[in-house]
Nucleic acid binder design. Sequence first.
DNA 1: ATGGTTTGAGACATATATGTCGCAAAAGAT
DNA 2: ATCTTTTGCGACATATATGTCTCAAACCAT
Lengths: 186, 186
Amino acid sequence: MAVTAEQIVTAAIHHLNSHPTASMAELAEAAGVSRATLHRHFSSRDDLLVALGRRALERWEQVQDALDLTSAAQESDPARLAATLRDLLVNLVDMADEHGFALTDPAMEVDPDLLRKLEELEGREMALFAAAQRAGVLRAELPVRWVGNAVYGLLVAVRESLRRGDVARRDATGLLVDTFLKGMGR
Amino acid sequence: MAVTAEQIVTAAIHHLNSHPTASMAELAEAAGVSRATLHRHFSSRDDLLVALGRRALERWEQVQDALDLTSAAQESDPARLAATLRDLLVNLVDMADEHGFALTDPAMEVDPDLLRKLEELEGREMALFAAAQRAGVLRAELPVRWVGNAVYGLLVAVRESLRRGDVARRDATGLLVDTFLKGMGR
DNA sequence: ATGGTTTGAGACATATATGTCGCAAAAGAT
DNA sequence: ATCTTTTGCGACATATATGTCTCAAACCAT
């Protein structure tokens, strides 16, 4: 098999990052594949979009699993929690860079399965934030959901900064972590 | 004239906030107007979208003008700069709430005029951020463009929080300002 | 080399949103 | 009350993306 479904998804993600409204024909071309072949792998456009979303969520889950997020959320040692938090952000920058468009594309909110998974992953992450708040790593007076959404927003900022060339890839991680923890005021 | 173009734009913005991919027919209905009348005001969908973008940028400009942003950026008094900064954020929350979808919709980046205006307004805002950095109100070690993008990202977070009902409208402003200045770490 | 599989190219049908038009009804002005 | 303007409705034409299908060529395993 010359070009696998996985590769198509990858190519589609990359292309959609710079051309969010690309047609199937464009995406086929971006994957170096005919339109017919594209349809052999994904029967409809929605099908493909869902696959992209699934991929993005998979990646995200891998990040969480690699950090053993669920057990980390049971932790109470501030130092360890802070480290986990930092690691999480570092990896999320990669996510934002690679799967950027999935952050804001409305198509990600149509499939119920995707939505469930999204909420599950969000939930795990918020558990970590909550633990960090209890341990005094994060400010406890902020609603956890706000913390979660703010992280999401800052990732959008990272993506935008990289897309526009405002920030070097090397600097992005540091800026995110730093801004997340300390804000921008003096 | 029963329904003005302005009103149509307003209705369209509101509808698009919850239905980002709405068709012309839907938008006509949302405005309480026939499809034909909608086309009498806006010859094409792009036309309408550009009008929406223009409206959003107008509001943004009004915010900047009301705060006399350009002269405020010449200021060197930390207290005044901090106050202006706060006022700006307060008003931007309104923007994000009303014109939310314009924050992330790709259609906003197609029209050259819109893009120019956007960059102009962004420029003015960054001048303020830069002044605040010089006056020690904002941390000077952060690239101004990152500051600008981070504010944008946090506005996306605000919008998302409100849309999902995670945060009460009354609390949004405080959370944004607070998070912007102090971050989320302890 | 050969047989089975996958692919690309193009034709084809379809659906859906878009944009236009004409005309009768409603609204508004004087 | 009448004249003018605006609106809604439905028909119409169009464009464009989508999804399906066929068949010959390329590919691949053995």
